[in-house]
Design a protein around this nucleic acid. Structure first.
Lengths: 256, 256
DNA sequence: ATTGGCTATATTGTAAACAGTAGTGCGACC
DNA sequence: GGTCGCACTACTGTTTACAATATAGCCAAT
């Protein structure tokens, strides 16, 4: 077909004018089904710390390509939910004992502040949301382990949401996940994550706007969780080994 | 060349035994020179919010490949330092006004807690580190804008480090960067990020173990920073536009 | 003058082939 | 019998080329 218009060849194009990237749908990778799937699997403890996350297997499981999986895994690695080891692959993150303690300490700080802020700005809609959650948690089937784990996590997320600070909310989400990993790594077998009666108490104190009481209850609740985990015995061997190697390395460097 | 040994073809191999991924050098992507380069460029305000981060340009600038750049950019996008828009590319993150306020609120919470914890566990080494930093900050060349910005950020990071909680430290680092972006986006021209006298005061109060005073000074310092930014006038137009569109969309959903 | 349509180019996104590395199992050797 | 070494597989990591999308420039028409 004849070209309607002859186009002269332009030698080069000017630097593109810097268009501001506003007004664009900022769809995040957090909404990705692969990311969401792995996150819920972890928070429900179907995936345990140290589990291998093979790229091919995930690709066939989710019905997508390896590239997509790689993107999701590296995102999760940025959030310290997944550990990537060169030429070995991706594994579910296994926090150290020190890191587990730091996670709980961070939660004490952030969630007590969140409770306080939530009480300050509690309105009708917030009260309704909180009551609805408490009812769901009260009447849920306690034998459904996966639903229980999801619900207990959602309570803490809801409090963070009621605080009205999105940055804090994102941090809380991240800490919740890392708490799941910490508990899964260091839990004593058979114990639940959250003591089942703590959430109704805290919720009632928030609804009553008893700030001091709610903050204290939340702090106590988190400390109770923390006291339920114990350092792994077996890890001392590993630490000893690494200590030996480090000593040998240091001696080699020193003695030439 | 002759094969020394005939190998029979094995039909399939068993599932590999799950070797635990411990005892491996966990080199993080945070140490990547591309990531570090972009982060320091942002914290020194050489890269402004909204700036385009073209993959090819970065690849040639850093002397590496596009894939490497893509990995670095997606990591930075996970940390909300970079905004990736499909088919448009990566830009330096530009926080909204609400997000900027949330960042400062989060810093108030985390850094006051960090000051408190830092005083609790302050030892000789910590005192020395703090004194060394205060001296560097006192005698640095105030005309060197880039060095100034680095030093003021380092003070806050040092306090978080003295608190002895790595999780909190990582959060503080992230918040520092996002504060840089918030200030760069909403600052009044010509004003410094931190009031120059605040850091010596806070440092002295920490060294004196005056917990209440140090916490108060830190909170005041952050509030002072926050009060120095103002919402952009131009943004109101955009907000009005988006409001109109949202209204139209809602009406279409309801009436259609 | 502004808007709309068209084409060329720049840039990002994706697929597939290739290369490199770690891990497994068999055989050999002491 | 335990250890060592080799060949092979499975997997990750990288390169390459190609496809898809958005942007800029130009012309025409209103």
């Amino acid at each position: 077909m004849k070209r309607t218009r002859p186009f002269k060849r332009r030698p080069k194009r000017a630097e593109p004018k810097h268009r501001e990237p506003e007004a664009v749908d900022p769809r995040s990778i957090d909404d990705d089904p692969v990311v969401q799937g792995i996150l819920t699997a972890i928070s429900q403890k179907r995936l345990k710390p140290g589990a291998k996350l093979g790229e091919d297997k995930l690709a066939t499981a989710f019905g997508t390509t390896r590239i997509h999986i790689r993107q999701a895994l590296s995102h999760l690695a940025s959030r310290k939910v997944v550990m990537q080891i060169p030429n070995r692959g991706a594994f579910v993150y296994r926090p150290s004992w020190e890191e587990a303690q730091d996670i709980f300490a961070a939660r004490r700080i952030i969630e007590t502040a969140a409770v306080s802020a939530a009480i300050d700005r509690l309105d009708k809609a917030g009260k309704a949301e909180l009551k609805a959650h408490m009812e769901r948690e009260a009447r849920h089937d306690r034998n459904d382990r996966w639903a229980s784990l999801s619900l207990t996590a959602e309570f803490h997320i809801l409090v963070a949401k009621l605080a009205g600070n999105r940055v804090l909310l994102e941090m809380s989400r991240e800490l919740m996940l890392r708490t799941s990993l910490a508990i899964a790594t260091f839990e004593q077998p058979g114990e639940p994550d959250c003591s089942p009666d703590a959430h109704p108490d805290i919720g009632a104190l928030i609804l009553a706007r008893d700030k001091a009481g709610a903050v204290h209850a939340m702090r106590h609740h988190i400390e109770e969780m923390e006291q339920r985990i114990r350092p792994k015995e077996g890890e001392e061997e590993v630490d000893e080994l690494t200590a030996i190697f480090q000593e040998i390395g240091a001696r080699a460097r020193a003695g030439g």
